[in-house]
Amino acid sequence: MEEYYYQLIAHYFNKSINSEELQQLKYWVERNESNQRKFREVLRILEAAERYGQQPTSQAKSWALVANHVSQSLANEEPKPKIKKLGGWHRYAMAAMVVMVCGIGLLLFKSDRAKTGQQTIVKVISNPNGEQRSITMPDGSIVYLNAGSRMSYNAHFSTDKREVKLEGEAFFDVVHEARRPFVVRTGKVSTTVLGTSFNIKAFPAKAVEVTVETGKVGVVLQRANKKDIINFLLPNEQLLIDATTEKIVKQSINATDVSGWKQYKLVFYNMSMQDIAASIERAYDVKISFKQPRTAQLKLTAKFDKCGIKQVMEVLSKLAGTHYDIKQNNITIY
């Protein structure tokens, strides 16, 4: 019988007692002095037991030990980064286009092999600026995720469709499956394919750009209270969709230039310095600021092939007639 009241005291101490139990406990405690003493004593025991071993831990230090081990074990398992040496120096200068090939190009592939597990779990892959990687999807499709971009998908694609959410830029090489469309969601715009390769650029507060390299792609813009707009794209066609103004532009383009980033090429066609700077910030993990706002509006066309940041900045400032200054990761254009 007494054990029951001791349990009630424990519930009371844990703040998990219900009103009926509380009533019973109150009655028991008030019955006599001996019960009151026991009540206080049990509380003191529980309090002491609660405080036992409670002390600041060096959790961060311990995690650093574990994290160090984890990164080492992953580094040992994955194939070593491929370092590809390219020929000598080549420079091609054409009209308003500059092609530069640097002495050394570093190809770093981090493959996130999504092994087929049985759980339904959302997999999120996020690239910081300056880092890109290729991902092999559960269906064998390959996704190249650009720097400063992030995608998520169900680790186990559902049986009726293959769905991916994207924020930023990625190139998709989709394995053909007639019964299971591959859908890329970028806010209100979704791109549906059966099996093709295409590039999507969808950074926050920017127009979504879909560019097709092979096959046929359907792009849907969802609109509130209105019919969705559907566009079909063929190779070397690009669709620019502004989800807020609902303005849509279709144009012809060299699709391999658009997806050049996955070979560490940067191609800018008649692009504002501001947008070019945003691409460079993501690709090289730097911060670019303009001393004169007018420079940011300048439009340029340029092409870079595996160049270091200094070479890129050298060429851009020559084209734009400006100067630049690099301090660690901060670049100022003036």
């Binding site: 831990t57 959790q59 311990s62 995690w63 574990v66 994290a67 984890v70 990164s71 992953l74 398992e77 996130d112 092999r113 999504a114 092994k115 597990g117 049985q118 759980q119 779990i121 997999k123 680790a155």
Partner: peptide, 21 residues
């Protein structure tokens, strides 16, 4: 644990933080 099997270090960190103390 499913994510850890897929080489996910963040999942390990989450489990670590959950039970370390």
């Amino acid at each position: 644990i499913g994510l850890i099997k897929l080489n996910d270090g963040l999942a390990l960190e989450c489990l670590f933080n959950r039970y370390y103390q």
